[in-house]
Amino acid sequence: MNWAAVAAIYRFEMARFFRTLAQSFFSPVLSTSLYFIVFGTAIGSRIETIEGVSYGAFIVPGLIMLSVVTLAISNASFGIYFPKFLGTIYEVLSAPINFLEIVIGYVGAAATKALFVGLVILVTATFFVDIRVEHPIAMAAFLILTCLSFALLGFIIGIWASNFEQMSLIPQLVITPLIFLGGTFYSITMLPPVWQTITLFNPVVYLVSGFRWSFYGLADVPIFFSLLAIGAFTGICLAIIWWIFKTGWRIRS
C-alpha cells in the first residue's frame, strides 16, 4: 500500500474543507435550528410524543441522517468530479497508486466532512431537546458506516457524471425522496398498513430505524436488518467501484 499517497489525497481534500470551515460549521447549526423551530415547535406541539419520546427528540436521528447522507454524497461526488472536470485527474492516474488507495483518500475525506457535520447537528440539537443515546457504540458505528457508504455512492456518481446536471440528478431524484419517505420525520407505524409495506422497500428506512434505535431503543424494523442493509449497500458500492477501476470506465480511456 502507498499510504503516503492516501494521506496526500486525504490532506489535500481536507484542506479545501478547512478553507471554508466557518461555513461548514455554521450552515448545519443554522439549518438544524430552523428545523427545530419549524418542526419541533409548530408541528411537535400537536404530535406530543411518539412511543414515549418527544417529537423534537424523535426527529434528531433522522435529521442527522438527512444531512449526513446528502453531504457524504455531494462531498464525494464533487471531490472526484472536479479533478475530472479540471483535468487534474491526470496526476492521480499517472501516480504509482491503485484504486483502493484512491478510493480511501477521496472517500475517507468526504466521509470525514460528513461526519463532522453530523456531530455538529447532534450537539446543536442538545440545545433544543433532551437527547439520550442508549447504544453509543452502535450509534457511532451507524453514523460512520452511513458516512462511508454514501460517500462511496457519491464517488460513483462523480465518476459517472459527465456534466453538472448529472451530478445533482441522482441525489435530487432518488436520494432526497427516499430519505423524506424513509421515516426521517415520522415513525412508519404512523402510516396506513399498505404504505408501511411499500416503505419496507426503501433502504433508508432501515438506516434511519437502526440509527434511531441506537438513541432511544425504538426501531421500525429489527436492528439486525438495519445492519444487514447498510452492510449490503456498502458492499454493492465497493463492488461497483472495483469494477470501475478494473475497466477504467469513464476515467482511463
Binding site: N2, A4, A5, A7, A8, I9, R11, F12, A15, E91, V92, A95, P96, I97
Partner: peptide
C-alpha cells in the same frame, strides 16, 4: 500545497 500533493502521490 499542490506541489506537496504531487510528491505525496508518488509515495514520498
Amino acid at each position: 500545497n499542490t506541489v506537496r500533493l504531487s510528491r505525496g502521490l508518488f509515495g514520498l
